[in-house]
Amino acid sequence: MSPLMQGVTIIVVGVGLCVSYFFLSNWLLDRVFLPARGQHIDRNINRANAIRPWLFLLPAVIALAVYLAYPVFETLRLSLFDRDQGNAFIGLANYQQMFSEPKFWEALTNNLLWLLVVPALSTVFGLLIAQLTDRLWWGNIAKSLIFMPMAISFVGAAVIWKLVYDARPAGTEQIGVLNALYTFFSGAEPQVWLTLPFWNNFFLMVVLIWIQTGFAMVILSAALRGIPEETIEAAVVDGANPLQIFFRIKVPQITSTIVVVWTTITITVLKVFDIVFAMTNGQWETQVLANYMFDKLFRANDWGVGSAAAMIIMLLVTPLLIWNVINARKELK
């Protein structure tokens, strides 16, 4: 069997099984166990309707429980045990070990740097572009092009930007655009950007900002368009200039959207892995938590410290999680 046919078969069988679960279970419920006929027809229908939500929910609830809820607790457990000592409970020893590693503190500080810079710049650029394109006849084309990196994988983006940052020995033609510009304007030696400690973090962040700005722009642009035209017209009549209209009339009306955009990007930043993994793999002081954890889990094979690192990421996400749940509950009421 050719690999193509094999792939198609696997796909059809896998998807087919899932579809048939829903049809079969509902068919059994309505036709076999609680048929809508006979003298108990009303009772049967009502009981079937009480059971049905759980038929609908079962696969999703199981998948969520096994693939997201259970791992949170299991990771917490793993972080408190040691695999090498026969799964002995060792309390916070893994955390102590992790806190004693300079690489961890490097990852944590870098992550905080990312948290400061990336959501802020992405949101600001997004807002700026949303506002500028709002007035242009070709605004939608521009937005579409700026939004495009959203579709590109972090790995693909890493390759794209590595080409930008590429460095050739001094005296030869530079093929990375950054060095080409740098040597042309400053006349200095070309730099190997990704190995410059501290600054290289920013070169990595540029990649994520490049990707996330489109996201911020799309959402903020919709929010700007949702502002009632009358409020802007009133400001124009009141004599406000475009800058005043933007900062005093528009921005205050979309604050809640800005917050949502900001937090969404924050969550993305906390999980950032591929970019660092593909571009520097944490060398030259560019380590971040997710990559540090991956390192511990799959290179050092140290599940305890790896899990402890994962718990740190979880801890950082928790305030956002609580905030989200509170908001959602408010909305339900």
Binding site: L64, P71, E74, T75, L270, A310, I313, V317, L321, N324
Partner: peptide, 18 residues
């Protein structure tokens, strides 16, 4: 509420247990 909470759980946590 549980779905909303799980929305932000980093998948990093799931690697080893799974």
């Amino acid at each position: 509420a549980a779905v909303v909470a799980l929305l932000v759980v980093p998948l990093q946590l799931a690697l080893i247990p799974l």
